[in-house]
Design a protein around this nucleic acid. Structure first.
Lengths: 238, 238
DNA sequence: ACCAGAAGTTAGGCAAGGCTAACTTTCTGC
DNA sequence: GCAGAAAGTTAGCCTTGCCTAACTTCTGGT
């Protein structure tokens, strides 16, 4: 009866002096990072709540906890900004997310429009060691299947030199770099039209008042709605 | 500003009328299943608590919740038994666990003694679709890297025809089928001695009072402690 | 400059799980 | 067969997150 003591599932990971954060905190950090984008305006509570699908009250409470944990600076009523620590956490999750997306697509053949939601869950549950094995298997890739850059092991991320397709004038264009991975229907649609990252794209015509945008992609013409065009990023010309 | 509504991360999976269970319930079901083993004695609260590393009080409360959810039958003070629904849940987790272990070892080259703890986490977070992709990639395998049988897609599991090495008499033996995956040190030790599932093993001598057991494995002799031998399963001779 | 509405926060609840301390039930040894 | 030990349960509390309802602060239009 007195068998060897079962290995209790206690402190598993972490060699580095890196604090553990709950899944909730990880999602908030990622959301704030993505809302913060390039401009460094603080992010409003409502925007965070919106993106995470919770009420502003819940977000408000959570942001206070994040501030206690030193992941954000929070000036009540005026918004939050990630601290360096919060940004690291966000980038860590983004690295996980994009590595997992690429892995699922490349190694397991999961369709382009399905990898996002799977990665959304798994990103919180892989160890550093598994992250590294995946990155190695993929050859330390720089971009995920939607064209998004993957932060390096040291969490450096290539800065964004793209513009939204919806912001281009007629005659503008470049290489279609990436598209938000968050809407499977959009992904399926683009994929079915043969519009994939890496393709050359050019704006042929625009209609006023959010009308369709006519573009040519590798010879073919397509008319795209503005909401879609807003999510498509094209390499900036310089 | 009124962009397309972001896809909220609500009800994601489940085509089948399959209820969702929290991670906690999944772990309890698995623990009870494994404690129940073949004998169908009910499992005590303390044993469950022990295996999961929680206090008996916590387990007691949780078992009541599982009973409400129809995963176990609970007679107060006398123990729990899984319901068919609870057993399905346990087998589902065991299938996930063992597929993930094998996948990590085969596809990513993760060492034998590390796959368990990674799988312990991930088993709760893969979708049915990913489960299927993994199983396909591995060719619908029947056993994980420790030699444990993997339940089929329909959750049928091969019944156990093995005995503990510690229960064999001198002269007894058979094929070393598997070993508990829960103790990395044991795994590393066996691996370093070249004792791996599939090898022929025979008991050469035993000392009384839990003394070492001398066995031969593919020509070499080893002396194994009783606790270790208790966790090694050898194909039953008939 | 003010006030209404928008944005944010506080208060009070709930559910899951965990803990300790105290109490009950069951089992066992004499 | 009964007392004390062992096993199980209850009570009361904590934390993480989420909710609704009510309150506060900020901001923009006249």
């Amino acid at each position: 009866m007195t068998a060897a003591p079962e290995s209790v599932p206690d402190a598993a990971h972490k060699a580095h002096p890196e604090r553990r954060h709950a899944e909730g905190a990880e999602n908030y950090a990622k959301a704030i990072y993505q809302l913060q984008a390039d401009d460094d305006e603080p992010v409003g509570t409502g925007a965070v709540a919106d993106r995470l699908g919770v009420t502003p009250a819940s977000a408000s409470a959570m942001l206070k906890r994040l501030a206690d944990d030193n992941l954000v600076e929070h000036s009540p009523y005026r918004g939050v900004r990630l601290t360096p620590e919060g940004e690291q956490l966000a980038l860590e999750m983004i690295r996980h997310h994009r590595l997992i997306e690429l892995f699922l697509a490349e190694v397991l053949g999961m369709p382009w429009d399905r990898v996002h939601e799977e990665a959304e869950v798994l990103e919180h549950h892989i160890s550093e060691e598994l992250e590294e094995l995946i990155a190695t298997k993929l050859g330390q890739p720089a971009r995920d299947p939607h064209g998004d850059p993957i932060p390096s092991r040291e969490l450096d991320i290539e800065d964004d030199r793209t513009v939204a397709l919806s912001d281009l004038e007629v005659g503008g264009g470049g290489v279609f770099e990436r598209v938000s991975d968050r809407d499977p229907e959009m992904l399926r649609y683009l994929d079915s039209r043969g519009i994939r990252p890496g393709a050359a794209i050019e704006v042929r015509a625009r209609d006023p008042f959010e009308g369709p945008i006519r573009v040519s992609v590798s010879g073919d013409e397509h008319a795209l709605g503005t909401p879609l065009a807003r999510r498509m990023r094209v390499s900036a010309e310089r």
